[in-house]
Design a protein around this nucleic acid. Structure first.
Lengths: 342, 342
DNA sequence: TTTTTTTATGCAATCGTTGTCGGTAACGTT
DNA sequence: AACGTTACCGACAACGATTGCATAAAAAAA
């Protein structure tokens, strides 16, 4: 006997579907005995309400969509765990959709999730997104959206980020304090919030220590390291720079690992020839050769917080809300890759 | 001006919904002029059929569910990319669900995906699953299931795995050839197929080289490394073994990285005190300290193949099928962690 | 002109569930 | 005896889309 519906129960018990429906949700206007009968039968037949029918009827799905650039990235996979931890507790399912830093795929995923009537969206922008119309339109139609990590500037909603400025400042200052002076910055596409904020932190640290900013030390990788060639070119340009940097402050898992690979491939030593601090959540940072100094984000907590924001938005749509932009502290873990060999 | 339905189009154009529906799918019995009108209007209003209504009507969703233990694992995230590459090309969406090695969560995810009418399931078993009734029942109701990586033995369907036996044999033999004799094996829960097959490969290699098998060298971690304590205990037992192993052949990303951490934390050197070969797809294996020798699986291809099997099953349900068990070759990459310092 | 055929369209049922409305029976109240 | 309450339950429509069947109008054949 395949999947059982409310209709089957009604037929079997000689009741109407409405009665069965009400009995199942314990409505007060159903006789206790009838309720018992229905409940028992439903239990016995392992009845489960059809979520698709409910979605159609109620125009919602009790699930939230997550739109991120890449699953295979420690920051995002940790964030997903945070998201799920809250979502499941509050009765929501989580649908994950990665776009590999492609605007086109971000667009398609967004449409798809909206069509499947997710009740809300958690978004970290792709490396190619500067147009946000697709989000704006959905939001204006009443779909709650919360951004995290890579957030748009001119967009009114809840946002959850790490304190990228402070994190970058701290990472850069650490390099300066170690005695490095020619510090390069390898980073994500220039139009992303994380890029800008980290860049500002980096610059401010240099400034405050009287080190001039050399624009040729700043390299953007417009696909966040997804395109190997791009990172390779950027790193090689730094390595073969007429005034080779003695340290690199790099952003992102992929960027940082690629950068390390290339430096080693070119026969240079870390940190002796070039030191590295990564803005990354790599779990194996301490196992790398050399152990990687890293500014890490509280990814799990960011996911949790963003999800709480989102679910509040979903469940109290009328509440007059002051949208918040939460900024969580990063943490600098110093390891070998940034130590001055004296 | 929210989301537009077929009804809105019908009303606007003074037609019936049936006509609109047929016009949109280009039915031959609709007047060319009417068709044009409908198409144009739909285009202009950016009409998209409601997938939920379709799912309800057709009892399918044009999506496939993926049930895996952990997203934050290089093997699985690579496999997901392979899965998506095929699925999207063939018009299916992919819904990912991780269970963190918990049987309970695997069960819930499975039920959820089935209720949401995924057209098929791609499964890699959780570390806790030995009961497979939930899969069997769904399959008997006509839901196609294809297993990959961690496959059940007594289950008739397509299966896609790496050649775990050969991979483990090769990895172990490599250690032997390097001169290691006291080779331990740190592995996943004993009842998983991958565990058994790799264990057999490991044993066979030892046997063929006349090395006795010491059961106390074989450590199972029943949660695949997800519970730190468990791995810690296992590795410590090996390290403090009266006859300490001089090499460890370890399975899985988490297991391998934890193992390396612990060895180092205990003040031992790799490979001088203990050599390591990991059965893992860690992308940063070459960056570790020391660079990790690894048996890697063709994760992307495994995902692709499994998906092709599944979609064939979905789209040709009646075809008398001989279920296949495909076994793909692994690849041993030798790096520093397993080299004998002579 | 009448009959048949073709063409183009609408009606109604269906998927599973719930909300609205309405109905019946039993009982209490005057 | 007449009416109002209350408790319980069912019919129907709706959500959005598809589809078998019916049918009107137009075209073709008689």
């Amino acid at each position: 006997m395949g999947i059982i519906t409310i209709k089957d129960i009604a037929k079997a018990l000689n009741l109407s579907t409405s009665t069965v429906s009400r009995a199942l949700r314990g409505s007060y206007e159903i006789n206790a005995e009838t309720k018992r009968l229905v409940m028992e039968y439903a239990e016995r037949m392992n009845y489960r309400p059809n979520p698709i029918a409910l979605s159609l009827k109620e125009n919602r799905s009790r699930s939230i969509g997550v739109i991120i650039p890449e699953i295979a990235n420690n920051f995002f996979s940790q964030a997903i765990n945070g998201i799920e931890s809250i979502a499941y507790n509050r009765g929501y399912h989580v649908v994950i959709s990665q776009n590999h830093e492609s605007y086109e795929r971000e667009l398609v995923s967004t449409q798809y999730l909206a069509q499947r009537r997710v009740d809300g969206l958690l978004v970290s922008l792709s490396g190619e997104s500067n147009d946000l119309e697709h989000f704006k339109e959905l939001q204006s139609k009443g779909l709650p959206i919360v951004f995290f990590d890579r957030v748009p500037q001119d967009y009114i909603t809840h946002k959850v980020t790490a304190d990228n400025f402070a994190g970058a400042y701290e990472g850069t200052e650490h390099l300066i304090q170690q005695g490095y002076r020619r510090i390069a910055h390898l980073t994500s596409p220039s139009w992303l919030s994380i890029t800008y904020e980290r860049l500002e932190g980096y610059k401010k640290a240099l400034q405050n220590h009287g080190i001039p900013i050399d624009e040729s030390y700043i390299k953007y990788c417009s696909h966040g390291g997804m395109i190997a060639e791009e990172v390779e070119n950027a790193v090689l340009e730094l390595i073969h720079h007429p005034n080779r940097p003695d340290a690199i402050f790099s952003a992102g898992d992929r960027l940082t690992t690629s950068c390390m690979s290339l430096i080693r491939k070119e026969g240079l030593r870390i940190p002796d020839d070039i030191a590295i601090v990564g803005f990354t959540n790599l779990v194996s940072a301490h196992l790398l050769n050399p152990a990687l100094s890293a500014v890490t984000q509280p990814a799990y907590e960011m996911g949790q917080l963003a999800t709480e924001f989102l679910i509040d938005l979903i469940e109290r749509p009328k509440a007059t809300i002051r949208f918040e932009s939460k900024r969580l502290d990063t943490r600098l873990v110093i390891r070998e890759s940034s130590l001055k060999s004296s």
